[in-house]
């Protein structure tokens, strides 16, 4: 039985450990002042050769994986640079979820802030999913967020998600709005904080003014 909030679709395996955000979104795609066009940059050097021609042997360039929505990845996926462009790009590319044994910390926060679902399961589970989705005939995965369950053709496993992250994913919470509700508490904190450590108040402006 599937819940209301289910991500289902073609999954592709990228069994590469420590696949960093430099590889997920290379530098030449970071020069914008908006979020547009980042789908072009996703895993660029894996998808294209030095002349910009598609590498047809790469999984995401194969016809059977053209509608890929889910990545089954290696440990420490998204390590390295804090660039949120990696998450924006994956979403624009059509990726809705990544399943891996572990994720880089900043990437994890970035994903949560953009409702890119990250599913952490054991390496053994990832290996099972990988074996299934490597066969085009069994390359579909279903992730049921209501019941916290991932399912491929031959494998089925529960996963966990903090209550906060689950709510963020399901309800698309406005985090900034939620924090702005605490404006009075922040002001009260600042008053006490600066009373105790006045040298921390206006630190940016004070240093800039001194050096100008």
């Amino acid at each position: 039985m599937s819940g209301k909030h289910t991500i289902a679709g073609v999954a592709a395996a990228l069994p590469i450990a420590n696949l960093d955000t430099d590889q997920i979104m290379p530098k030449q795609f970071l020069r914008g002042i908006d979020k547009a066009g980042l789908d072009r940059g996703v895993l660029y050097d894996l998808r294209f050769d030095g002349e910009g021609r598609p590498r047809y042997d790469f999984i995401l360039n194969r016809a059977e994986y053209a509608d890929c929505r889910i990545l089954v990845a290696g440990e420490n996926f998204g390590c390295g640079s804090s660039r949120e462009h990696a998450v924006w790009g994956l979403l624009q590319f059509g990726i809705r979820a990544v399943i891996a044994p572990s994720f880089g910390e900043i990437f994890h926060s970035n994903a949560m802030n953009n409702a890119l679902l990250l599913v952490a399961v054991s390496q053994a589970d990832v290996d099972r999913f990988t074996r299934d989705v490597e066969q085009p005939a069994s390359n579909r995965i279903e992730i049921d967020v209501d019941h916290l369950q991932v399912r491929s053709r031959t494998h089925d496993v529960k996963f966990t998600m903090s209550a906060r992250h689950r709510a963020m994913f399901l309800e698309g919470q406005d985090l900034i709005g939620a924090s702005l509700v605490h404006a009075a508490a922040i002001a009260e904190f600042e008053r006490k904080h600066w009373d105790r450590q006045p040298w921390l108040q206006s630190i940016g402006a004070v240093v800039r003014a001194r050096k100008s």
């Binding site: 804090s82 926060s109 802030n113 605490h182 922040i186």
Partner: peptide, 20 residues
């Protein structure tokens, strides 16, 4: 802490971070 751009916006608006 290194943070993402959504968090940069959060800091600009609130001078705080939701920290796990």
């Amino acid at each position: 802490f290194g943070i993402g751009t959504s968090e940069v916006e959060h800091v600009l608006a609130t001078q705080t971070l939701v920290h796990r």
